[in-house]
């Protein structure tokens, strides 16, 4: 038997309520494989509030505390404090929220937790809109995208909020982006985060076939092309915000190829696509420039 590429323990079981090809579910499966059984999840309102299952049944074999939409981070802070006061310093507490619960309604509480550097892993599984309520725009929705609240006649004109930068401004010990298309990388990042004390922020690109108007089998494909088209850079920020590492070792693919099978971008005209693609490239260049700049400051990453 060949050694498995990723841990074989399944803490997320079958029978859950996710849509076909759900990226958020794949993200959870990988994350739990990385984190193991000694983990407690705090889940606010988001797709995962439903995916978990219906009372009194849960598809996940570790403790979960479902909490209100805007409180994932701070409820996790509370859980961690509660555990530590019971003498449990080992259990990893994970806030597991969608992009709405992170970029929008949960931003304040997350900022609070990060500023205090409470010892939790905050995971944003980013499907780039309010998917659980039926595909409304969030501040994570990328420019050009259709949602039910940004109809094609008035698609989203503003770029996706740069949540990673916001988190970096909190000088927390670890920030990473990940994509469900790269399980080994994702698992490595979760394991790394688990070993670090303080607030860790991991933003996982989790395609939503339903909301992206994407055929479900292309879920992983999209998660991969988002990375190789530079739309969703894979990065790590360590040394309390002082060191940026961007993954560049991939064969670049085109923005156009990435959006082609996604119905949420179908309305875009050729010139609009080009315009957005330019924006993607300049964000990428900015990121690389920052990586270089930070690396050039002597003594910064020590």
């Amino acid at each position: 038997m060949r050694e498995a590429r990723i841990p074989t323990e399944e803490l997320m079981g079958s029978g859950h309520l996710a849509c076909q090809g759900c990226g958020a579910t794949i993200a959870m499966r990988f994350a739990l494989k990385a984190l193991g059984r000694e983990t407690i999840l705090v889940i606010p309102a988001c797709c995962w509030a439903v995916i978990d299952g219906t009372f009194p049944h849960s598809a996940v074999d570790i403790p979960i505390f479902h909490t209100a939409f805007e409180t994932a981070a701070v409820t996790a802070s509370g859980v961690k404090a509660g555990l530590e006061m019971r003498g449990d310093f080992e259990t990893t507490v994970v806030a597991w929220a969608g992009d709405g619960g992170t970029f929008d309604i949960g931003l304040q509480a997350l900022s609070g937790t990060a500023e205090r550097n409470d010892d939790i892993i905050y995971v944003c599984y980013d499907n780039e809109a309010y998917m659980n309520t039926g595909i409304q725009r969030s501040s994570s929705t990328p420019v050009g995208s259709w949602t039910t609240t940004t109809p094609v006649t008035n698609y989203k004109k503003r770029p996706k909020k740069n949540m990673v930068d916001i988190m970096a401004a909190h000088a927390i010990p670890y920030i990473a982006t990940a994509s469900v298309a790269y399980p080994e990388d994702l698992i490595r990042k979760f394991k790394k985060a688990k070993a670090i004390k303080g607030t860790k922020y991991i933003q996982v690109l989790a395609p939503c076939p339903t909301g992206w108007k994407l055929s479900p089998e292309l879920s992983i494909w999209a998660a991969r092309k988002a990375v190789t088209s530079k739309v969703y850079p894979m990065l790590e920020i360590t040394e309390n915000g002082n060191k940026l590492t961007v993954w560049k070792d991939f064969e670049p693919t085109s923005f156009k190829e990435y959006i082609k099978p996604q119905g949420r971008f179908r309305h875009l005209k050729e010139n609009e696509i080009e315009e957005i693609a330019k924006g993607v490239e300049s964000s990428w260049q900015r990121l690389l420039a920052r990586e270089k700049m930070l690396a050039s400051i002597p003594g910064l990453d020590t």
Binding site: I40, F65, V74, T75, A81, G82, R116
Partner: peptide, 25 residues
């Protein structure tokens, strides 16, 4: 002998209490 989580809002204060209490404290 307690942890005092100095939150950024009352909403978070109660959320933190909810988390802590759920954890058995």
């Amino acid at each position: 002998d307690a942890k005092f989580i100095k939150v950024e809002s009352e909403h978070s204060a109660m959320a933190a209490c909810v988390g802590a209490s759920a954890a058995g404290s």
